[in-house]
């Protein structure tokens, strides 16, 4: 895009930053509200929530809500569970879905049109619709564990991971991205005798930083925000993820301060993940930059 012009950029620069900052305020205010509220006792939080004090760390500020949240629920366990489930699924998903995307975007094979249509059609199926049939299936699926063959996937990590590895949207993201990659790159590699696996791993994937980042974020969000499914398939506290944990805080005489503290805590890992990806993402664009 057009960048700094040569003349009178002082004022222009100021206006640009002003616009950027005002927009930023719109996006960030509920989060500031959340974090500030988490530092206040419930009574004060409710009174403050009606005024600009909601955005300020004023009044009776402390970390009490955080301490009490840890007393009420095994917060660290829930976050660890969610991170493990989410992380594993994201990694497996990126691998499996990029392979499928590669196959559909680059290769020609019989049945491809049908497979692509089927994949796109699944985008329209709300998960809640298939939850009950999936539950019935999951309770009867076999698994080879430490004690040999077992039946039933309930109360496990795998039941929260494996059904979500492949999804239409992630595959579709890769398909659209790979289609944009100049075909002469692929052809050149093939001419040099590269196998299709090598084309995938040596030519395409190194160019796919931006889409990997996008797909990873999307998958991360979906997985980190799972609620209905873990509720249905996990009865043991040891496997519960963060949003099921949120229910611990909705009691009679709601502890608003603790809820805000819990919400703040479960949001931090996602922000960290995004900031990490953003760096990787920028770096990958800077280093490749050959597309188009």
């Amino acid at each position: 895009m057009n960048t700094l012009s040569h003349d009178n950029h002082g004022l222009r620069l100021f206006v640009r930053y002003l616009v950027l900052t005002l927009i930023a305020a719109i996006f960030v205010f509920p989060l500031v509200f959340m974090v500030m509220s988490s530092l206040k006792p419930s009574q004060q939080l409710l009174i403050d929530s009606g005024s600009l004090r909601a955005f300020l760390p004023v009044g009776d500020i402390s970390l009490n809500n955080y301490t009490m949240a840890f007393d009420r629920a095994p917060v660290a366990l829930f976050v660890a569970n969610s991170l493990f489930i989410t992380g594993t699924t994201v990694i497996l998903s990126l691998f499996v879905c990029s392979l499928a995307g590669f196959s559909i975007a680059i290769l020609s094979w019989r049945g491809k049109a049908f497979v692509l249509s089927a994949i796109l059609a699944t985008l329209t199926v709300p998960f809640e619709t298939i939850a009950v049939p999936l539950l019935l299936m999951s309770s009867k699926l076999p698994w080879i564990g430490m004690d040999g063959l077992e039946v039933g996937w309930l109360n496990s990590y795998r039941v929260q991971i494996i059904p979500f590895i492949a999804d239409g949207l992630t595959i579709f993201l890769f398909v659209q991205y790979f289609r944009d990659i100049p075909s002469d790159l692929v052809e050149a590699a093939r001419a040099e005798g590269a196998s299709w696996s090598q084309v995938y791993s040596k030519v395409l994937m190194p160019l796919s930083g931006p889409i990997i980042a996008t797909a990873a974020i999307l998958k991360f969000l979906v997985m980190y925000n799972q609620y209905l499914w873990p509720l249905m398939v996990v009865q043991e506290e040891g496997y519960r993820p963060v949003l099921v944990g949120l229910q611990y805080f909705f009691q009679l005489n709601t502890a608003w301060g603790e809820i805000m503290a819990y919400l703040s805590m479960i949001t931090v890992p996602v922000l960290v993940f995004y900031l990490f990806l953003q760096r990787a993402f920028i770096a990958s664009i800077a280093s490749t930059g050959v597309k188009g």
Binding site: V96, C97, L99, A100, F102, S103, I104, L107, S108, W109, R110, G111, K112, V115, A118, I119, T122, I162, P163, I165, A166, D167, G168, I171, W196, Y200
Partner: peptide, 12 residues
């Protein structure tokens, strides 16, 4: 083609 697509498509 099928080999690359199968893990994803099979899971779906």
């Amino acid at each position: 083609g099928w080999a690359f697509a199968l893990p994803g498509f099979g899971l779906m």
